[in-house]
Design a protein around this nucleic acid. Structure first.
Lengths: 335, 335
DNA sequence: GTGAAAGCGCTAACAC
DNA sequence: GTGTTAGCGCTTTCAC
């Protein structure tokens, strides 16, 4: 049978409350007592029962991780963040339950239910969702500690963490400009995402600063997938054949485009320069190695977990911005 | 305050046990009673307290997902499987806790502790680990429902699920042979992994069947990373310049190699044919689209969860093999 | 510094 | 078919 604190108490000739206090590092136990308890616990192979702990304390050392239940392509960042989230949580004995929720079929109140069902201490919303998604409204009304990625949802109980997307897009565009390009197209992802709009802002900032006209810098809207990138670049070549460089709002679109261009006999970067966004790790093995803006997913994962722990411990919601970094690769030529 | 079954009982003028029975779909309650309870539950906004349920029933609807806490490159499959695992589990109200364990620093007994700490119903070991890893020994001794991926650990309480690696590697090699190649190299990953040895077996089966000699079919050992692939292809060109096709035991090695080859001015597939393994989704956006063997991660994820649920419900350990599928891409030429 | 006792929300005998 | 009651393993007053 399983060893409980009652067994330890018996073994040590003490009461269960003393054992409990000793085990939990509370004050009010003699060093000697604590030592005896700890020893007995080890000897008997005691493993605490968290269900019991959670029942009485009305909270668990469990947090929810929410990701959108969509295609894998839509959420590469999550998977680079996860180990870091887990590591930061584990430092404080927290664990993560993964919820894959259907972004489309979201039912109001779902999140609150998820949280209260298991007495979760809080949650991290990892997938970017359209800014007007009901989940965000619910978070604004809730009083559960929550951290939201890639979206601004700031309350007493909710922190945000984002890459500085405006800066990232600015850096990418600026790099193309610095390489002598003036005919620069931007292929963006879904407009409903806050990050898309911010990336656009960064693009515009750089092009305007360089005095490039709207005609020189066409903007296309796509869907963040490789296929979408392929289609967009086809359209781009048709409508704006004078383009010399394209900034794709993520790496997969850039890859899909380059793959298509190669088949069409258009060489990257000799005939067309391409830069992506995200810093997906396969980019460095791409042919050619893909210029991109690296998002610091380890930092985001770690900070997201830390922000959540702060909220759980009574802190207030805040916003954190992570700096991106340019990776030049070999997909951009100098004119 | 939070609504409990006691509140519902009061509200309906019944006892808590009746409410409990009604809520849990047990027999022994009149339809009318159940209906009243269900209605009251909804009206009052009742959310069950799983901690309490778990405490008394001594088990939870929680399973552990174990992944190795190594570089992202080492575990792409997991991330394609996760949504399917989650979906299959959710069908039976199960949820997954993610444990990132340090494969290197594994302490004997760790897994059992993880499982008993939260009364987990079982676990799925998702990352391939060296066959002699102590974790597998522990699983062989344990009596917790466990599903192991990519390794043969079969007990009363432990099922396996694997891709048919021998077949997959055979298909890849056979494809190269069918395209007229006779000088075929194989760049494998870590030998300590069961899947590596099986992939080798498939390679050998195909080459022997075609009557190719050992000299014609050199074997190199690498590490499943893009960088490793790059280094291996360099070595290969030096030692076996007569090679016309290379089979890499995963896609990232193949990508790293192609990326290097392009820089070195060697065209794929014109001068050297390349096929990978895994079917990583970025392969289809690669330049050129990468020939590979597609592992059916959705099926593996779903089946893994189902196997675990079977074990939890008293079933016995079994082995399941999933068929891989050839994707021809454009990285292999016909001689 | 330690013990006794109540109770967290729920299930499962056992009675009726 | 429904109610009563005794816990599940633990924390936390409140005494002493």
């Amino acid at each position: 049978m399983r060893v409980s604190i009652r067994d330890i108490a018996k073994h040590c000739n003490m009461s269960v409350s003393t054992v409990s206090r000793a085990l939990n590092g509370d004050y009010g136990v003699k060093d000697k007592t604590r030592k005896a308890v700890l020893e007995a616990a080890k000897e008997l192979g005691y493993v605490p029962n968290l269900s019991a702990k959670e029942l009485v304390s009305r909270k668990s050392k469990l947090v929810g991780l929410l990701i959108d239940d969509s295609d894998y392509e839509a959420r590469p960042a999550f998977f680079e963040q996860l180990p870091y989230i887990n590591k930061a949580l584990a430092l404080h004995q927290y664990r993560a339950i993964i919820y894959t929720l259907n972004g489309m079929g979201y039912v109001d109140g779902e999140l609150s239910d998820i949280l209260s069902l298991r007495n979760l201490s809080g949650c991290i919303v990892l997938s970017p969702l359209p800014s007007d998604h009901p989940l965000y409204d619910e978070i604004r009304r809730m009083s559960y500690p929550t951290v939201v990625l890639e979206n601004t949802v700031l309350t007493r109980y909710c922190s945000n963490i984002n890459t500085d997307e405006v800066l990232g897009a600015y850096m990418a565009t600026r790099y193309l400009i610095d390489c002598g390009h003036r005919r620069i197209a931007f292929v963006n992802g879904f407009e409903a995402f806050e990050m898309s709009r911010e990336r656009l802002e960064g693009f515009l900032k750089a092009t305007e600063e360089a005095g490039l006209s709207k005609d020189e810098t066409p903007i296309l809207w796509s869907d963040y997938t490789g296929n979408g990138g392929k289609k967009s670049v086809q359209e781009l070549l048709r409508l704006h054949p004078e383009t010399t460089a394209v900034f794709f709002a993520n790496d997969f679109m850039a890859m899909g485009a380059i793959s298509y261009l190669a088949e069409a006999g258009i060489r990257v970067p000799d005939q067309l320069s391409v830069i992506g966004y995200d810093g997906h790790f396969t980019g460095k093995y791409y042919n050619p190695p893909l210029a991109t803006v690296i998002i610091d997913n380890p930092a985001i994962g770690t900070r997201a977990a830390e922000l959540l722990l702060e909220l759980i411990n009574g802190g207030s919601g805040k916003t954190v911005r992570i700096k991106p970094q340019l990776f030049k690769g070999k997909s951009v030529s100098t004119l």
